[in-house]
Write a protein that binds this DNA or RNA. Structure first.
Lengths: 123, 123
DNA sequence: TTAAAGTATGTAGTATACTGTATACTTGTT
DNA sequence: AACAAGTATACAGTATACTACATACTTTAA
């Protein structure tokens, strides 16, 4: 159970961004019942997993609301099992699309590089 | 040589977005010299290629300025050959990173799906 | 020929995802 | 005790990427 400062340090995500994600419903911490002098929020390892997933998914162009869909399906927030599976399947299809697009870009860029290199050696 | 309406139809990108991309320096059309009654801008097939590249790159999370870097390297805008190659190499590394992240996500989601399915059949 | 459709330009507004600032309270250190 | 550091809350501001609107001109079709 970590406070926000520690969570930020472990994930590399700024505190402000963590609060923003929490407000966006991507995850939530909770206060410790035994502590009554403050309302500090504690985060468990599940939150770290979620943040790592968010980082990956953002890096490949998913929006926060798309990511929220997956996380909700993942951790079963008020949706049926078949709906969960459907969300995950849709996301898997999108991932394959993205992989294909990346492969196509790779091919295109590699070709372009070859052209540039040949242009140099030909001179 | 197409006018913006045609370009929009062929690429599926809204006219407003095309103008925005052009203003952002991602590509440019040119007026026809022989036409003097208006200042309509015409776009060639190179622009279509660039727009398709933009669509792909955006889908996998590249920003417009990152995309502009590649396009500039691609079409040799005032940078040296070695700088061009460097930009393209950097982009190839980023692409591989994204592919790896997508594969990791795929694994994670597939695992999650399996868990949900097993939970169902176990009942 | 005139009305609809297309084009150019400029400016404002919107959505997403933060980022910063201000205030106030709590905790830890010296 | 007191001062730095951490936490919570709220609200304003910023960057990116559009999207819409207003105006004015040009072209095309009936």
């Amino acid at each position: 159970m970590k406070l926000i400062h520690q969570l930020s340090k472990e994930t590399g995500i700024p505190i402000g961004t963590i609060r923003f994600y929490e407000k966006s419903g991507l995850f939530s911490g909770k206060p410790k019942e035994e502590v009554t002098t403050n309302n500090y929020v504690y985060y468990d390892d599940e939150v770290i997993e979620k943040i790592r997933f968010i980082q990956m998914a953002k890096a490949v162009g998913f929006t926060l609301s798309e990511i929220k869909e997956v996380i909700d399906a993942w951790y079963q927030r008020q949706i049926s099992t078949s709906a969960q599976i459907e969300v995950l399947n849709r996301k898997l299809i999108q991932i394959d699309q993205k992989i294909n697009e990346l492969k196509a870009m790779k091919k295109q860029i590699t070709l372009c590089k070859t052209n540039i290199e040949n242009r140099v050696t030909a001179q």
